[in-house]
Design a binder for these strands. Structure first.
Length: 528
RNA sequence: GGGUCGCUAGCUCAGUGGUAGAGCAUUCGGCUUUUAACCGACUGGUCCUGGGUUCGAAUCCCAGGCGACCCA
């Protein structure tokens, strides 16, 4: 191994094999013994750096046409994790993996001794005895395609860079236990290439959004996560506490109200891409912390924003997956614009036969809905709420291709501007993809008096115990009183978009570290 | 919140009342063209936790934990 010349002592050190235990503790002990042996032999088991000349994928591409058995006198230096070892008496093959891919190391005793022998005659033996699958090593050598056709680096010199103490999962079956995959995502990432690809795609999606909006002249801003009055959505917040101010604070449930303050302040195109927190249950479609982008454009309306949305997402789908048609869980989804637009009333009428726009009376709407097999209508406080129940129960799931549902009832849209020509409705759209709400946008309510009235209704609900109702944010109203230009806003659930574009069945597959309950409670297990 | 299923070696999994198993990994020996390398030998267990039934429990019963799926 590459080493400093000082300590070239024969390995009179503790052998790695005096543990009779091959369970996890035994493996750790054996590897710690190897760490000691490496040090004893003058090597550094946890190195400081390594000069890499080529990512592995570059080598695979550059020498793709090299014939079996051929060698190139082209010296490279690479680094990565040993994923598999195939060791013979005087020859060994390692599979080395870096971020870009894998390549085989061709490790010949003859060659390594010739190059490293003077420094360490034990170089090849150390390779066999002191390296394990999971270790991170650096290697310098030339390119060779073996007789069996595997592109390899014929190693002249190598060095341990990081000694791994824990065994990798089964090299063939990998790690499949989903709980373990989420709890130890680092192991999942090491052994499951498709998981790495998902998070690469996620990064490309957010980068593409930023690039797209930057080109359109949008400004990325950051607004508070800690708020004294969470608003902008109907959801229960997380509560936290500030010590020196001696006050409760809430983690934001949306970025909406602060972004609108930015618009009031004169920024005409703003967005924020960031984390919001909702104190809700966990499912394949919900994680308590998730990522949204909200964007606001002055002087535009919801038609403008729908046009922007379909164009942007179509472009992202093409960039990230290579096509505007993607396969999601065996279902083809086409992002080619323009997307279908249908009013909420039309959509519900299509599926239930009921025209809710004819109802002015709540009980008549409830009766009709019940007759159509719609549940939970008794608690509805308005025709609009009944319509929404009907939509959620009978329509939502059926919207597989990207679809804009437009013109929502005003009762369920406290921040939207009234529709310019349809009384009782607002200029709002929601985007559905594979049956899931993925985006939500509307012409923003700019009338401060109307806004105050609508938020007061919410505040009253909150006061009477509705935990999801939002409070009245006086400062937001004050901002509107200074005057907000006509504005359209929209939010996209980034995690759900990532799910569709990465073919992930669960939101947990699109979030690197999803929330999980601790595996074991440290507190006493005795019941009370 | 309800229902169904799962939890056994580091990993992937067998094992339905009678001494806890296999493959891979680990350890040891052999091997210069392997790639799920191979051959030989060995090692490795809180059978998720706690109760109960039983002469005897991974297995049956009860409660709990964590997870998956479905429903609300």
């Amino acid at each position: 191994m590459v080493q400093d010349k000082s300590a070239n002592t024969p390995s009179a050190t503790p052998s790695a094999n005096d543990s009779s235990d091959s369970g996890i503790e035994g493996i750790r002990a054996a590897r710690l013994a190897k760490v000691a042996e490496l040090k004893q032999a003058g090597m550094i088991p946890y190195a400081y750096s390594w000069d890499v000349t080529h990512p592995i994928a570059d080598l695979q591409a550059k020498f793709a046409d090299l014939e079996a058995g051929a060698e190139e006198d082209f010296e490279v230096s690479i680094a990565g994790r040993i994923m598999a070892r195939r060791v013979f008496g005087k020859l060994a093959f390692f599979t080395l993996q870096d971020e870009t891919g894998t390549i085989q190391l061709y490790l010949e005793k003859k060659t390594i001794q010739a190059q490293m022998g003077e420094a360490n005659e034990q170089a090849f033996n150390h390779l066999k005895q002191l390296t394990d699958a999971g270790d991170i090593i650096g290697a310098i050598g030339t390119i060779k395609r073996t007789d069996k056709g595997e592109l390899s680096v014929k190693v002249k010199q190598y060095a341990m860079l990081t000694k791994s103490l824990l065994p990798l999962p089964d090299k063939f079956h990998g790690l499949t236990d989903v709980a373990k995959r989420y709890r130890q995502r680092y192991v999942d990432l090491i052994v499951n290439p498709e998981v790495r690809e998902t998070f690469r795609k996620r990064a490309r999606i957010t980068a593409a959004i930023r690039r797209h909006l930057d080109e359109l002249g949008y400004l990325e801003v950051e607004t508070p996560v800690l708020q004294s009055e969470p608003g902008g959505a109907e959801a229960r917040p997380f509560v936290t506490y500030h010590n020196t101010l001696d006050m409760e604070l809430y983690l934001r449930i949306a970025t909406e109200l602060h972004l609108k303050r930015m618009v009031v302040g004169g920024f005409e195109k703003v967005f924020e891409l960031g984390r919001v927190f909702r104190n809700e249950g966990v499912s394949t479609r919900h994680n308590p912390e998730f990522t949204t982008i909200e964007m606001y454009q002055a002087y535009g309306d919801y038609q403008d924003m729908m046009a922007l949305t379909e164009k942007m997402i179509e472009q992202i789908a093409e960039e990230v997956t290579g096509s505007s048609t993607v396969s999601y869980q065996q279902e083809l989804v086409s992002f080619a614009a323009p997307w279908k637009r249908i009013t909420m009333h039309e959509a519900v009428q299509e599926k239930t036969g009921i025209d809710f726009s004819q109802f002015t009376d709540l009980s008549a709407a409830q009766k009709a809905a019940k007759a159509a097999g719609i549940d939970n209508v008794d608690d509805c406080e308005s025709v609009g709420h009944v319509l929404n129940e009907a939509f959620e129960q009978k329509v939502e799931e059926t919207l597989r291709q990207p679809t804009f549902v437009i013109d929502y009832p005003i009762e369920i849209s406290p921040l939207s501007k009234p529709h310019r020509s349809k009384p009782g409705l607002v200029e709002r759209f929601e985007l559905f993809i594979v049956g899931r709400e993925t985006a939500n946008g509307f012409s923003e309510l700019t009338d401060p008096v109307d806004q105050r009235e609508r938020l007061e209704i919410q505040a009253a609900k909150k006061a009477s115990g509705d935990l999801e109702a939002v409070g009245l944010d006086e400062d937001f109203i004050t901002a509107l009183e200074y005057g907000m230009p006509p504005t359209v806003g929209m939010g996209i659930g980034i995690d759900r978009l990532v799910m569709v574009l990465t073919d992930s069945a669960s939101i947990r597959d699109a979030i690197a570290f999803p929330l999980l309950k601790p595996e074991k409670s440290d507190s006493a297990s005795s019941a009370s």
